[in-house]
């Protein structure tokens, strides 16, 4: 009886997900491992991984995701610690200020950086205006501008993942370390950082996979020489009409998203076990 109810209630959603998500995605995956004769073949992948254009994009994607995650973590720990020690009123303001960018379209946030960093943007106009430089700097459409965009895009996720964890850290631990002669910054690194690892992992996973799969930021702030996986799929499909290559890259992107998720979940699981042991 209960079982039947559960089935009746879940069935519409399951059917919808199978028809509209699992099946279309599976078809894309399957198409990439069959050749024209219908035999299983990984020749497509072999050819893809021989193209330096693709491998460069892949390593660039992973490198930018790693740097973004690292910067968000290094900045996120002190900032979220500071937020967690604010008065209730200020804390809720700080959290809404961090949530607001998160609820603003990635496209709007990328446009902000075009306005700021462009050749005729605010920063260049200012620098040329005060005579500090003769010619506008080329910051936009480089890996630097992409990184700036990614960090602004995903920092809030890291902050929000960390604030809750920081709240449960006892300040006396930090004071104890300092009383025993540990310099403040070192005490912070040795006490607060290890205790906030669970938040760092949650936040890290969100930031890493988010950066890896973001589209608006690399397409607006990156250039033709700084392709990442998402902009590469777009180029293959929408510009070159090369659907086979686009599918291959799409599958690689799914693979790495799942891989990163599994990796971070594993680390989190291992840490939990160690802490409870």
């Amino acid at each position: 009886m209960r079982k039947r109810w559960a089935l009746v209630l879940c069935a519409p959603g399951i059917v919808f997900l199978i028809l509209c998500c699992a099946w279309p995605v599976l078809r894309i995956v399957l198409q990439t491992v069959y050749d024209d004769t219908g035999a299983v073949s990984f020749a497509g992948y072999a050819a893809l991984f021989r193209k330096s254009f693709f491998t460069n994009s892949l390593t660039r994607t992973l490198r930018l995701a790693a740097i973004t995650t690292a910067v968000c973590a290094v900045v996120g720990v002190p900032v979220s610690y500071y937020i967690s020690r604010m008065s209730e009123k200020r804390k809720s303001l700080a959290i809404s200020l961090a949530t607001f960018p998160l609820l603003t379209s990635a496209i709007v946030r990328s446009i902000c950086w075009i306005v700021l960093l462009g050749k005729k943007g605010v920063i260049n106009n200012l620098l040329v205006g005060i005579g500090l430089i003769d010619r506008p700097l080329s910051i936009l459409y480089t890996e630097t501008s992409m990184l700036i965009g990614y960090i602004q895009l995903f920092m809030p996720l890291m902050l929000l993942s960390l604030v809750g964890v920081m709240e449960s850290i006892d300040d006396e631990l930090l004071q104890a370390a300092q009383t025993l002669g540990c310099p403040p910054v070192l005490a912070f690194i040795k006490v607060v950082v290890p205790l906030s690892v669970s938040g760092l992992i949650t936040g890290g996973m969100l930031v890493f996979t988010g950066t890896m799969t973001a589209y608006a930021t690399p397409s607006l702030l990156g250039g033709t020489k700084t392709k990442v996986l998402s902009t590469l799929i777009d180029q293959y499909a929408n510009i070159n009409s090369d659907w086979v290559s686009a599918s291959l890259v799409a599958v690689v992107m799914i693979f790495f998203t799942v891989l990163i998720n599994v990796l971070f979940t594993q680390i989190a699981g291992r840490l939990n076990r160690r802490q409870s042991a």
Binding site: C20, C21, R27, T213, S230, W243, S247, V258
Partner: peptide
């Protein structure tokens, strides 16, 4: 959530 939404759009365009 495991499928990047860009890829989801791509799969829907191709197969759905």
């Amino acid at each position: 959530t495991l499928i990047p939404s860009l890829v989801l759009g791509f799969a829907l365009l191709r197969s759905f």
